[in-house]
Computed example of a mutant assay.
Amino acid sequence: MSTKPEHYDVIVKPVITEKATMATELANAYAFQVARDASKPQIRDAVEALFGVKVTAVNTVVTKGKTKRFRGRPGRRSDVKKAYVTLEAGNSIDVSTGL
């Protein structure tokens, strides 16, 4: 599968948190922040093309933005869509290298 420019638009960045690291170690699942309008098949194709791995499942979650205060004035964080991508046994991704 060849890499297309659209694949870089689907995956925004890897999510490196304690929860995402635990998912990697326990279930061979990697977390990525993805475009809000990205579908599961698009995410699967992008991960397989960019990293050269075989994906078995894609689970997505939309985290609604919080209202926070900045210098006393209320502001709103953006909504974020994350994808938890489960890989076949034997496949792995080094998320520290970047895209």
Rank of each mutant, 00 (worst) to 15 (best):
A31I: 01
F32M: 09
F32N: 08
K40W: 09
R69F: 15
K40R: 13
A35Q: 09
P14Q: 00
A35P: 10
A57M: 11
A46C: 08
G52P: 07
M22E: 13
A57C: 05
D45T: 10
K19Q: 05
E48A: 15
K19A: 03
T21K: 04
K66V: 04
K64A: 13
P14D: 02
T60S: 04
N28A: 07
A20H: 02
K13D: 10
A49F: 09
V34S: 08
R73D: 09
G72W: 05
T17Y: 00
A49R: 08
K66N: 08
V47C: 07
V62Q: 03
A49K: 08
V34E: 05
K13P: 02
E48T: 11
M22G: 01
I43N: 03
K66P: 04
D45F: 02
A29H: 03
D45E: 15
K19H: 03
P41T: 03
A27D: 15
I16P: 01
K64W: 04
A23I: 00
K13L: 06
K68H: 05
I43V: 12
K68R: 12
G52Y: 09
V47K: 06
F51Q: 05
K13M: 07
V53T: 11
K13F: 10
M22R: 10
I16A: 05
K54C: 05
Y30M: 02
